[in-house]
């Protein structure tokens, strides 16, 4: 196949073949990181705008470095520096960016659907860097890349995603991607944050982590998002750790080759024991490194398509 999308707004609309295409392309870009000169001219002369309406350091930095390694010019705009705080609409702000010759807009936004909204209205490429509780496609792609790198393939693996699924865009993008590539997915967490309706997406829902851990090849821990949680969703951190935290005792239930993943930032001692986060099964730092390669691949592919 050949790549023909100018935007990456979600995993849901990608085919398995397209996902694999991005992962294979990422492998080529990961190689660039081993060269003397870790920079290629692929996006020379193009301007990328990191438009982060919601704060993020990790994802923004990763996109910025990816863009710079592709020789693009990078502008960072955050919620506090944008005119959105002065009442300008998202559409108007984006049109202004485009009038300033932005070729690629990387958007992080608190509203689900905001990247698609822009993609439909702009000639520029729009890359979703996380929209509300909807999707975070590059995170899922880097997670799959990391799993594939360690385990050879995705098909047939059993992956547990643990934690605050209801409000997690990382969970949704991972569910879509893992299912498309033939993995089995079990969601684990309190019934308030992992409602049964998720089973209609084609996954299994469990509220008992001890039953799930011995059966999985990958355990993906999500950040417990204190800041977004309303207190009616679970009683408190202490109870969360007791019921769902990956403690040392629970880690003994895991298969020896089970990978431990986390999209970061980690709450050490909450969703995961601190030593486990740094342990041999943890691939958390590999996820970060692979994130750069995956984002280079995505920017190269979408940014390399002729605008409409």
């Amino acid at each position: 196949m050949r790549w023909s999308r100018k935007d990456l707004v979600g995993i849901r609309e990608l085919s398995a073949e397209e996902i694999t295409f991005v992962l294979d392309t990422a492998a080529a870009f990961k190689q660039v990181g081993t060269r003397d000169v870790k920079k290629v001219p692929a996006l020379r002369g193009k301007t990328l705008v990191n438009f982060f309406v919601e704060p993020s350091t990790r994802t923004r930095t990763s996109f910025e470095l990816a863009a710079k390694r592709l020789s693009a010019d990078v502008i960072n705009i955050s919620a506090t520096t944008s005119s959105l705080t002065k009442g300008e609409t998202l559409k108007d702000t984006a049109k202004i960016l485009e009038a300033n010759h932005a070729d690629i807009i990387v958007l992080r936004h608190s509203s689900a659907g905001a990247p698609q909204f822009l993609a439909e209205r702009l000639r520029a490429s729009v890359i979703n860097a996380g929209d509300g509780a909807h999707e975070h496609p590059t995170q899922a792609l880097l997670d799959l890349y990391t799993i594939r790198e360690r385990r050879g393939s995705i098909a047939g693996l059993h992956v547990a995603i643990v934690g605050d699924i209801l409000f997690s865009r990382v969970a949704r993008s991972n569910i879509f991607a893992l299912l498309k590539l033939g993995a089995r997915v079990t969601l684990v967490g309190p019934s308030t944050l992992v409602p049964r309706v998720f089973e209609r997406l084609g996954v299994t829902v469990s509220h008992c982590i001890d039953e799930v851990l011995p059966t999985v090849d990958v355990v993906h821990l999500l950040r417990v998002q204190h800041e977004r949680q309303r207190k009616e969703y679970f009683p408190g951190i202490g109870e969360y750790i007791r019921l769902f935290g990956l403690t040392k005792a629970r880690a003994k239930l895991l298969k020896a080759d089970c990978l431990i993943m986390h999209p970061g930032p980690i709450n050490r001692g909450v969703e995961i024991d601190s030593d486990l986060a740094d342990g041999v099964q943890s691939v958390i730092l590999a996820q970060v490194t692979n994130g750069l390669a995956v984002r280079m691949a995505v920017l190269y592919l979408c940014g390399g398509i002729a605008s409409r």
Partner: peptide, 15 residues
């Protein structure tokens, strides 16, 4: 990734 026509094509082959 070193070509001079990126951004001018309708689709891209595998790298």
């Amino acid at each position: 990734m070193h070509r001079d026509d990126v951004g001018k094509r309708a689709n891209l082959p595998m790298v």
